[in-house]
Design a protein around this nucleic acid. Structure first.
Length: 272
DNA sequence: AATCGTTCCTGATAGC
DNA sequence: TGCTATCAGGAACGAT
């Protein structure tokens, strides 16, 4: 599942591969993924336009066009953006195709069809973006701000980290991994964390996200970069997906519980 | 404010 | 072997 590091990897790849290119044509094979405007208008608004700027906000990709409009994409669980020659056969789950001159495609592949595409005047018009919390790697996200944010929340820390309105871009993998690194039990009440623990969590969160970007993300499930390759951070995961396997720190088995309806991995011995 | 269930979708897996 | 039931998972939404 693409989270902040995976989306960051993709947006950087896109900038390298398609910046300045003009969209010749858009082929929509799955209309329901186009959330707004209606598919025909979406298509007309993109055809003939150049892609000029690339940014990430939370798990959203925001691509600015020379018309001033923005193409906004959320990959959800299984969305992928693949840049390839137009001669490569389509997959069953190729949903949207952007054609470029020079016989290349940018394809939106999405097995589960949960992905979302928008063409908007401003990304602020998208509710999910407007309500996003701070960027965990952004300048405004200071330790004192994090302390303040946590002190007001009585909810469990792990689901809270994944709440996009609280912090932008953290998903199931990096929430579990950050808490493991900070040695904090995922069920702890946010407001009950000590100052030291908040400090450790702040540091862990940012270090892990930066490291995961360096490694081009984790390919748990089906994530691929724009070239179709897996990320290398998977091998660095300490608890996620390791139920029953020995904790790298103490050797006791990693546990999986459900929190907020999500699988949560942790070491009951190391995380208190 | 917090929590819960439901919805979207389909491949993988478990059980028979 | 082959069928069927169950499940995961990001985020919005409504209900409690």
């Amino acid at each position: 599942m693409p989270e902040l590091p995976e989306v960051e990897t993709i947006i950087r790849d896109l900038e390298k591969k398609v910046k300045g290119k003009k969209i010749k044509e858009v082929i929509i094979k799955e209309r329901k993924l186009i959330k707004s405007p209606p598919p025909e208008k979406f298509k007309k608004g993109l055809q003939g336009r150049k892609l000029i700027a690339f940014e990430r906000r939370g798990k959203f990709l925001i691509i600015s066009l020379d018309s001033g409009k923005k193409l906004v994409i959320h990959l959800k669980l299984t969305g992928m953006l693949i840049h390839c020659p137009e001669s490569r056969p389509l997959l069953n789950h190729t949903r949207i195709i952007f054609l470029f001159p020079g016989k290349t495609h940018l394809r939106f592949n999405d097995l589960r069809k949960f992905g979302e595409l928008y063409l908007v005047d401003s990304e602020e018009r998208i509710k999910g973006i407007k309500k996003l919390g701070p960027e965990p790697l952004g300048k405004k996200f200071s330790l004192s701000l994090f302390q303040e944010m946590l002190s007001q929340k009585k909810t469990k820390i792990k689901p809270l980290l994944m709440d996009q309105k609280f912090l932008a871009g953290i998903g199931n993998i990096y929430a579990s991994e950050s808490l493991y690194k900070a040695k904090i039990h995922p069920q702890r009440a946010a407001s009950a964390l000590t100052k030291e623990e908040v400090g450790k969590l702040y540091k862990s969160l940012r270090e892990i996200l930066k490291e995961a970007i360096k490694y081009r993300g984790s390919s748990v499930d089906s994530y691929r970069d724009v070239g179709g390759k897996k990320g290398d951070y998977e091998a660095c995961l300490k608890v996620y997906g390791r139920k029953g396997k020995p904790c790298y720190n103490c050797g006791k088995p990693v546990k999986r519980i459900e929190l907020g309806g999500r699988g949560t991995f942790f070491c009951p011995n190391c995380q208190r």
